[in-house]
Amino acid sequence: MSIAAATTLPPTIWDGYHLEWGQRTYVMGIINVTPDSFAGDGLLPAGTGALRDPAVRDQVVQRAVAQAQQFVAEGATFIDVGGESTRPGASPISPAEELERVLPVIRALRAALPAETIISIDTYRAEVARQALEAGANLINDIWGLRADPEMAALAAERGVPVVLMANMRGFQKREIVSDVLRFLA
């Protein structure tokens, strides 16, 4: 897609949010509620699974809020909350564990951040996305581009929320990054 094409996209408007494409750059701050983040910035202590221990949960939530507030102060429009590591070789976790990780953080962020801050849930599971939206998330960030859970697209349509479609190249024959992403998203 050319720069000229990107500037002709219509705005994305939902629930009082308004994104004008091509007018400014939007920055997303990432909150990894994992012990094994790809970026090495996961908020859970090593060996921690779900956030059942109230002391650990409170500490993680406080760190997440502080990190998100810093991101917003530095210009982030979006705060993306993920509970399952997407690093190569990471083991999947159960939906219940993912919910235990992300829901307390999303609730706390919604209460602590300015109302115009967009909170996204980084998940490929429709049930996790549904509960995250109910907890205060405003957008879905699906690393599988709506391919992993057949209910995800219907959920986004039902709730009227945008979806960030990621091109997940796992198990996909790679040739050249731009054409690969276009083929994946097609």
Rank of each mutant, 00 (worst) to 15 (best):
L9T: 07
I13A: 14
I13C: 14
I13D: 11
E20V: 11
Q23H: 14
Q23T: 12
T25V: 14
V27L: 15
G29Q: 09
I31H: 12
N32K: 04
V33A: 11
S37F: 00
A39H: 13
G40L: 04
G42I: 01
P45Y: 11
G47S: 02
T48Y: 09
G49M: 04
G49R: 08
D53A: 09
D53I: 08
D53M: 07
P54V: 06
A55P: 04
D58I: 01
Q59G: 08
Q59C: 05
V60Q: 05
R63V: 04
A64L: 00
A66I: 00
Q67Y: 00
F71G: 12
V72H: 05
A73M: 05
E74L: 12
T77I: 01
T77F: 13
F78V: 12
I79P: 14
G82E: 04
G82M: 03
R87H: 14
G89I: 01
P92R: 04
P92L: 08
S94N: 03
E97W: 03
E97L: 02
R101I: 10
R101K: 10
P104G: 10
P104F: 05
V105G: 03
R107M: 07
R107H: 12
R110F: 02
A111C: 01
A112R: 02
L113P: 10
A115K: 15
A115D: 15
A115S: 15
I119F: 05
T123H: 12
Y124T: 03
R130D: 13
Q131D: 10
Q131G: 00
